[in-house]
């Protein structure tokens, strides 16, 4: 009966995960990390050969070569983990959630193993204004622009008792007209492009757009398909990106809080 359910709920132990354990955590996402100590031309080449997407690549800049790990294209297949002399290992923390597209592309100098840092993070404009107007209260409208539903399954988990997005004053709303942020999964299909544009137009300014998942960031493994336009930014302007295939709830939460600047303020 209804009261048994209520009683059960009241006697259950809390499973809420504290925010400090969530920020940057990417366990269960299969995301790899680069160990620059093992970076050499050969190890980089082996890792690149094992990568079925173009997440791992090398570019020449004059005499020097850069090894590139693009989290926006990585689907966490794990093929690179066994090769390349320990160059790639499972990541414990991925801090690059909710950042600019360029910041998802990490680069190392192949000769020295030194990371070449990208300095452009989130575009501050809209985020700053939303913070000023609403503090941390944020209304999110989720839009599926063609996803496989893997990202949706994880976004849905954000409202579960483990993550409880509402504790931060963040809600999912039913209409773009009530939203401050569009959380968009991709790839954008031809059949969804118009609906996505209309949804964006219906969202009042100031508004933030966050692209979610490898497909949302870059088109992912569907890049090049006749039916796919590309990542979200192929159709509407995007403020920040959350990588992963799919991103775990912890990565999503890290990204959303970073966009709002909340993470920085709490530290």
């Amino acid at each position: 009966m209804i009261f048994d359910v209520a009683a059960r709920s009241l006697t259950s132990k809390s499973v809420l995960i504290p925010v400090e354990s969530l920020l940057g955590d990417c366990s269960g996402s299969r995301m790899p990390a680069v160990d620059p100590g093992h970076l050499s031309f050969d190890s980089a080449r082996q890792a690149i050969e094992s990568c079925p997407t173009s997440a791992l690549r090398m570019v020449a800049e004059g005499e020097r070569r850069q090894f590139i790990m693009d989290y926006g294209e990585c689907i966490g297949c794990g093929y690179c983990l066994g090769v390349g002399d320990g160059l790639m290992r499972p990541a414990g923390k991925v801090l690059h959630c909710g950042v600019a597209r360029a910041a998802l592309i990490r680069r190392w100098d192949v000769a020295t193993g030194e990371e070449l840092l990208a300095d452009d993070l989130v575009k501050e404009g809209a985020a700053e204004e939303i913070r000023r107007l609403f503090g941390r209260a944020l209304n999110i409208r989720q839009v599926d622009a063609g996803s496989c539903n893997g990202c949706e399954a994880e976004i849905g988990a954000l409202t579960s008792p483990y993550y409880d997005l509402e504790r931060f004053g963040i809600h999912f709303v039913a209409s773009p007209k009530h939203a401050d942020m569009l959380l968009v999964t991709g790839p954008v299909t031809h059949n969804m492009a118009e609906a996505l544009r209309n949804t964006y137009e219906a969202t009042p300014s100031p508004r933030l757009v966050v692209a979610v998942g490898a497909c949302g960031c870059s088109g992912g493994i569907f890049s090049g398909s006749y039916a796919v336009r590309g990542g979200i930014d192929a159709v509407i302007p995007v403020d920040a990106y959350i990588p992963g295939c799919p991103p775990t709830p912890a990565m999503l939460l890290t990204g959303i809080l970073r966009v709002l600047g909340a993470e920085m303020r709490e530290r």
Partner: peptide
């Protein structure tokens, strides 16, 4: 609306890499 041309996108893909496409047809039944 979510037609991604997956069957055609499979064509030419090595069988091992086809795994990743199969896993991204319906994400909660991957």
């Amino acid at each position: 609306y979510t037609h991604k041309g997956i069957e055609a996108h499979f064509e030419g893909v090595p069988v091992m890499s086809g795994m990743m496409l199969a896993e991204s047809v319906s994400g909660d039944n991957c």
